[in-house]
Design a binder for these strands. Structure first.
Lengths: 170, 170
DNA sequence: TGTTAATTGACAGTATACTTACGATCCAGG
DNA sequence: CCTGGATCGTAAGTATACTGTCAATTAACA
């Protein structure tokens, strides 16, 4: 059996690789999001952070990073930018001097309400080329895969654990 | 009908959004790639660039960016790093003083051969949690979606067009 | 209680991505 | 031949991501 040792080293293997397709799809998704939301000066990451703070007012940066599965280091600058735009504010926590609690400002709540239709349009456009049944199938499989691979990423999603500090945890 | 105007503004809507899942899956994919390939000091992007140069020796940076659908500006620094590691070399094109042609060095060809098993392991690990039939279904749908959305991204893939300069185009 | 563990936010450094702009160069038309 | 438009590489500026480190602070434990 002379053929098996060396797989063909060509670009076509890359095109079909899961990692390449995931990267490509992410690029496309960001591009569509930015296009639909260009009137709002909000990136996908900033949008997710705002939503999370809206859902969990008074959350701190570390827990926020767990709730949206973003890197904590990166989140620092994201928060800075949101604060500079006056969409959120940081308040020191009385019981723990290390922590700064995050809250939406009125501007932040307002832009969130306004941007939602654009975001929904963007999300719809990403899947638009597929037939409705295929969209469902793809999202189902992807949600499954992301969930099952949760621990493989450096910043696993901890949607539940992160909320105990707010007194809502079980 | 009082209920329809305002969709619920919660983090759960984000978790189910295509854009969020694509971003999350990309994070996971990069994480797995880096873990499997940490012995080689190559990022996914650098790997794809090396493969593309290996497949199309003498390609220039602009065409390379089209072949792997990477941003041209970003690619400049990627090429710099690959050159610094002595994996590729840039040679001026005699017929066009603007262009620099890209070639793999011996080190570049060697590391490519060595890293391939690790890359294959990484690609397999990304899909491992799914049943084989589901892996196929997911990859099929995703490949379809990426292809149909090709023009939506800032840097559409131009696998074929990019090669005409090499005298192989039709 | 006092030392150690762990946690939090911040920073430095590297690597993608994208936008815009600019000089050098090539090409097409006149 | 020469001017305008296109293309090439490059750079500056912004925004994610991740690694590693650090000081301050808190918690845990002997």
């Amino acid at each position: 059996m002379p053929s098996k040792p060396t797989p063909p080293i060509t670009i076509d293997a890359v095109y079909a690789a899961p990692g390449y397709l995931f990267r490509r799809m992410q690029q496309i998704a960001v591009s569509i999001f930015m296009e639909e939301c260009k009137a709002f000066d909000l990136t996908p990451v900033q949008y997710a952070a705002l939503i999370a703070i809206h859902t969990h007012p008074g959350i701190d940066a570390t827990r926020l990073s767990a709730v949206i599965a973003f890197d904590r280091s990166t989140l620092g600058s994201v928060i800075e930018r949101l604060e500079a735009k006056d969409y959120i504010e940081r308040k020191p926590a009385p019981e723990d001097k290390r922590i700064k609690l995050l809250y939406l400002t009125k501007s932040g709540a307002a832009i969130l309400r306004e941007i939602i239709p654009a975001v929904e349009r963007a999300q719809a456009r990403m899947l638009e080329p597929l037939k409705p049944a295929d969209r469902k199938a793809l999202m189902g499989l992807l949600a499954q895969l992301v969930d099952l691979n949760n621990e493989a990423s450096r910043v696993p999603l901890r949607a539940e654990d992160a909320l105990e500090h707010l007194g809502k945890g079980g």
